[in-house]
Design a binder for these strands. Structure first.
Length: 198
DNA sequence: AGCCAGATATGCT
DNA sequence: GCATATCTGGCTT
């Protein structure tokens, strides 16, 4: 089934707390410019969350986090990778969901090219930086509504088994289980920790 | 499984 | 000024 034909999610889909949105996004399709796949991993960043860019208020970098739900927040990390987030909850809150991995289902050829010809499809979109490279997402999209940036989010075809585990690459609030993953997926950026596997 | 380099904007002191 | 960063790829154990 093509993500292109999937029924789009409701307009109010993102008007919820980021942890709810992140869990609900697992199993949805994400496509842009004819490439994409099924979301298998997403992390929530909330209001009053020390790990969130919005924690210390609005700054030039995280300005778009305070826009309306459904706004794209793209920023560069470690000086060389882009990360894709979607604003949630309500304007002015500063909540967002980081898209960390998708299972590639369409546009594989163009994504392989953008990713430098990797052979293993698990390395195409398995990781926030890999995903943005495969989908050609960059800072130009920052602050745009999803649709204006060319994104299509399709509703789930089936109910996935979603589990919440600690987030990756953060140093604050490391115990919060806001990394939502599709249990059993082989396209995650990293495996589910043993401590959370049961 | 673990260590390290790469490369740069950001935000705090 | 400077430590940090929602990371990746390559090399070493």
């Amino acid at each position: 089934m093509s993500a292109r034909r999937a029924r789009p999610v409701a307009a109010a889909f993102f008007d919820r707390r980021p942890e709810d949105v992140a869990a609900s996004l697992i199993g949805c399709t994400l496509s842009v410019g004819g490439a994409g796949g099924i979301i298998v991993e997403a992390e929530a960043y909330g209001q009053r969350d020390p790990a969130s860019h919005s924690f210390r208020g609005e700054t030039p970098r995280c300005r778009s986090m305070f826009g309306p739900p459904g706004t794209v927040y793209v920023y560069r990390t470690y000086g060389l990778h882009w990360c894709l987030n979607i604003v949630t909850e309500a304007p002015g809150i500063g909540a967002a969901v980081l898209i960390r991995a998708i299972e590639p289902t369409h546009g594989l050829d163009v994504m392989r090219t953008r990713r430098g010809g990797v052979r293993d499809d698990r390395l195409l979109c398995g990781g926030p930086g890999r995903l943005t490279q495969a989908l050609a997402v960059d800072g130009d999209m920052d602050g745009l509504p999803l649709a204006d940036a060319g994104f299509l989010i399709g509703a789930r075809a089936v109910e996935p088994d979603v589990v919440g585990v600690p987030r990756i690459g953060i140093s604050q609030a490391t115990d919060l289980p806001w990394r939502m993953v599709a249990r059993g997926s082989r396209y995650l950026s990293r495996p589910i920790p043993r401590s959370s596997a049961a």
